[in-house]
Simulated assay, not measured.
Amino acid sequence: MGFQINTNLAANNTYRNLNSTQNSLSSSLEKLSSGLRINRAADDAAGLAISEGLKSQVGGLTVAARNAQDGVSVVQTAEGGLTETQSILQRMRDLAVQAGNDSNNDDSRKAISTEVSSLTDELTRISSSTNFNGINLLDGSAGGGSGKLAFQVGANGDAASQITVDLSGANVKSIATTLASGTTATGGTSFTVDTTAVTSGTATFSSVKGGVTTSVTTGTLSGTGTGGSFKSVDEYATALTNDASFSSKFAVTVEKDANGAGTGIVVTAKDGGAVDTTAPAAAGLGTGSAAPSTVGIKFDTAAHAQAAITAIDAQITAVSTARAGIGAVQNRFNHAINVTNVAQENLTAAQSRITDTDMAQEMVKYTRANILSQAGTAMLAQANQSTQGVLSLLR
C-alpha cells in the first residue's frame, strides 16, 4: 500500500465503526430513558403491531371494569327501591287481612283505605324518584321503554362483551297503577254451579272475538261422587282444567262465598273473546252473566278485602321475582369484574414482555457502546495523525 494523503482508509474505517457505535449508544440511551424497548416501528415492526393491539385490549378492559362497577351501582339502586316497595306491599297486605274481618266498622275500613291510598302514592313516588344518573329505573321508562339496560363489560364489540339488565319486571309505577285503578278480580263469564245436579258428561263452551266463534266440547267430565257426580264446584273446575280441549282455549276459576265455599265458576277465553252466556250443554250449570270485577283494591267489604289480598300477593310475587333477577345479575357483574381484572393483568404482563426494556441487559449494551465510542474517538484521532509522516518528506 502506498503512502497516500488524499484517501485515509484507516480514518474512514474508524469513522464508519464510530458512527455505528454512536447509533447503538443513542438507541441504548433512548431505551434506558424511556423504559421501552420499542420506541418506533423500526425497533420491532411485528412487536409494535402486537403491543398496540394489546394496549387497546388493556385500555378497553380498564374502562369495562369501571362500566361493570357502574352496573353494580345501578342494580343496587334499583333493588333499594324494590326493597322498600316490598315492605310497603307487605304492610298493605296486612291491612287487607285486617279489613277482611267484619269486626271492622265503616270508620275502621275508611281508616285502612286512607293508609293504603297513602302507601299507593308512595309507590308512585318511589317509581319516579329511583334513578341513576338521571335514568329512572322503576317506572318502565328505562332503555327507551323496554326496561332493558346494556352494560359494556368487555373490550370488544361483540355480544359477549355486554351484559343486559332487564328491569321490565321492576315496574313499580305499574304496580301502583294496578293497585289504584286496575282490575283485581278475574273478568269473564260467571256460571252458577248446582253440585247436586252436575253429573258425569260433556260440556260445550263458546266465545266470540272479531266476529269469529270458537266452540269447544269437552270429553266426558267425571267427579268422585256417586255415578261420577261432582262433590264440589272446585272438583268440577279441576275437571275442566284437566280437559285438554277446554284448557287449550279457555281458563276457569272458582267463585267463592264469604265462607270460602265455591258457588260458581268464571270462564274466560284465552284469546280475549267474549264467552257465550248461554248455559253450556251440561246439567247443573245456569245461564252465565258477566263476572264481577273490582276496580283497584277496596276494603269496604270482606269480599273486596279478600280480592285485595290476592291482588297484593300477585304484586309481592312480581317484586320478589324482580329482586331475584337483580340479585343474580349483580353477582354476574361481580364475576365479570373479577374476570376483567385478571385479563387486564395478564394482557398488561404480555405487553410489558414485548415493549418494556430489560434495564440490566440494556445497561450492558450501553456500557459496551460507550467504551467503544470513546475508543473509536481516540482511534479516529490516531488515524488522522497517521499521515503526518508525509511532512518529513517535504522538508
Rank of each mutant, 00 (worst) to 15 (best):
S245K: 02
D276N: 12
G145D: 07
T253W: 03
G228M: 10
A279C: 11
V254Y: 07
R323Q: 14
F230E: 02
N338T: 15
A170P: 01
L18M: 10
A369V: 07
T196G: 10
T7I: 09
S200D: 04
N259F: 05
S34E: 09
T202N: 08
G284D: 10
K270M: 05
S386P: 12
V233H: 02
K110D: 14
A10Q: 15
D121V: 06
E122S: 12
L61V: 02
V275Y: 07
D107A: 11
Q76S: 11
G60A: 03
G284T: 06
R37H: 14
Y236W: 14
S232L: 05
T192R: 10
T238R: 06
E115P: 07
A274T: 12
S56I: 09
T294W: 04
N370V: 01
T277G: 05
L391Y: 10
S168G: 09
S87V: 02
S113G: 11
Q152P: 04
S127D: 05
A281G: 10
N8T: 05
S174T: 15
A142H: 05
G147Q: 00
G376K: 02
S103L: 09
A258M: 01
V233I: 06
E30N: 15
F205H: 01
Q382H: 14
F205T: 00
Q76T: 13
F3E: 09
T213G: 00
A96F: 01
G264A: 14
N338A: 15
V72M: 09
R16W: 11
N133Y: 06
S190D: 12
G201L: 10
G100E: 04
D300Q: 06
G223C: 07
S56H: 14
V275A: 01
M363L: 12
Q90L: 11
Q22F: 07
A311D: 03
A150S: 14
V266A: 02
G145E: 07
T214Q: 07
N259W: 03
D107L: 14
L119P: 00
I297L: 02
A281P: 08
T226P: 08
G140A: 01
G228N: 13
S27I: 14
T321R: 09
E84N: 13
N17G: 12
E115N: 02
E122V: 11
K173N: 00
I309E: 13
A307N: 10
I163E: 07
T204Y: 03
S289P: 09
V329G: 01
G188W: 03
G60F: 00
A197D: 09
R40G: 13
S320E: 14
